[in-house]
Design a protein around this nucleic acid. Structure first.
Lengths: 140, 140
DNA sequence: TCGCTCTTTTAGACTTATTCTAATCTGTTG
DNA sequence: CAACAGATTAGAATAAGTCTAAAAGAGCGA
């Protein structure tokens, strides 16, 4: 399966179609970088550089567009822990994060090792969309 | 008690001194805006505008410096929930937040209406600095 | 009080992450 | 394969925040 693989029924193509996104060259390349290696947390800039390293020509604007489309389609989750930096998480299952302050990295917390015993009533006229737990850890 | 109040033993002055910060005009004015009205969540830009509205001349750089100094001193807590925007919370007690997606506002969740039943082991060589729970709510 | 020194503030330049725009290109459908 | 809607692009634009060097202010001792 080469970088030029363009067959119409590859899992990535199916994934994109299922999300209502046309399987364009750029989206397929980015999807491969994102989803083939397993769970990961990337910034737009990182993904753009990885693409460049892999001889894939994609503009930074497209990387941003794609990450947001994937997020809207539920293929990614956006995680904000630091001012001025967004991570995109390829693991969309119910789970939480460690944020390692020393190096700014994120790490998944397995879904069942955090338990919320009690949740508050959401404010009048709203419903809970998602509960995020961020465990900030420091050296020591 | 006027805006020009400069007495050396006002609670704000004490608070600043206790934090090891000189009670300068700018810091006192900002501290008043922050701490007198009770619990609040502000951005740097908002605070800067409030100051301007109150005829207090403070540069934006000073607002940023001050917010960070207050945070380092434990008088404020920084909360990041949206890319490209930091909130500073005057409530430094142990509590969590609702994030109202519709308008981008934060709202405190009383400390005891969220309970964590189980916490994970932090990664090798780190210790838990803080656990943040963000309950994202949407209209409906 | 004055003067000295160290700290703070400031305007404005700069950086970084991200979004926008308008032109060009490409997938898909008939 | 033509046509068109949707996607991509370079580069400009924006926004939040930081940095810098110079000016102003605070606190101290005499």
């Amino acid at each position: 399966m080469s970088m030029l693989d363009n067959r119409p029924f590859t899992p990535i193509v199916q994934k994109l179609r299922a999300a209502g996104l046309r399987p364009t060259r750029q989206r397929m390349s980015l999807a491969k970088l994102l989803f083939e290696p397993g769970d990961r947390h990337v910034t737009a800039e990182q993904l753009h550089q990885e693409a460049a390293a892999g001889r894939i020509r994609v503009s930074l604007a497209t990387v941003y567009n794609t990450l947001h489309q994937f997020t809207a389609a539920g293929l990614l989750r956006e995680v904000v822990v630091q001012p001025g930096r967004s991570y995109f998480d390829t693991n969309t299952s119910d789970h939480h994060h460690f944020f390692i302050e020393a190096n700014g990295h994120l790490q998944d917390i397995p879904g069942d090792s955090v338990a919320l015993a009690k949740l508050p009533e959401p404010p009048e006229g709203t419903r809970i969309a998602r509960v995020e737990v961020i465990v900030r850890v420091a050296k020591g």
